[in-house]
């Protein structure tokens, strides 16, 4: 079943997104598209897992280092991308994500780029279905 896009990009606080991330049910199956984002200096990592059908993202999940800001950004992205065309998702920029989550101080907003990097890497991956869970 193809999901409808669930939400606009903006309008949720980091607190609510972080709480949602903690409650997120984990998707343990294999994925079509897997993408990584890494920040070695901060020891942060994100992995996005997507299922894509005919150019439409039908399922999205992620794993991320337990930084609340990073988790908040990833949580919003995972909700937002499900049901969207890959072209639309690839057009998303980190600045869009930063603008969408109000209340993150400037020195933490770089986490958005890491989340978007992982999402884009997944969208651009080869689409070979595999399991890669940690």
């Amino acid at each position: 079943m193809r999901p409808e896009p669930c939400c606009a990009l903006g309008g949720r606080s980091p607190r609510d997104l972080f709480e949602a991330a903690l409650r997120r049910p984990r998707w343990t199956g294999p994925s079509d598209h897997i993408g990584h984002g890494r920040d070695p200096a901060e020891k942060l990592e994100v992995i996005f897992y997507l299922d894509v059908d005919d150019g439409l993202v039908v399922r999205a999940d992620y794993r991320a280092t337990t930084c609340p800001t990073l988790l908040a950004y990833c949580e919003l992205l995972a909700h937002w991308v499900a049901g969207r065309r890959t072209e639309e998702a690839l057009a998303l920029r980190a600045a869009d994500l930063v603008a969408a989550v109000q209340g993150v101080p400037a020195h933490r907003q770089g986490r958005a780029a890491l989340a978007v990097e992982a999402l884009h890497a997944a969208l651009n991956s080869d689409g070979e279905r595999r399991s890669e869970r940690r």
């Binding site: 607190r15 020891k43 930084c67 609340p68 109000q102 101080p105 933490r108």
Partner: peptide
């Protein structure tokens, strides 16, 4: 503490130069 500040909606309302973060 970043989680504490987010929970209280004050993370972006702190004095200039004050950081949020966790043990790392």
């Amino acid at each position: 503490c970043d989680q504490c500040c987010y929970e209280r909606d004050i993370a972006d309302k702190l004095f200039d130069g004050v950081l949020i973060g966790c043990f790392p």
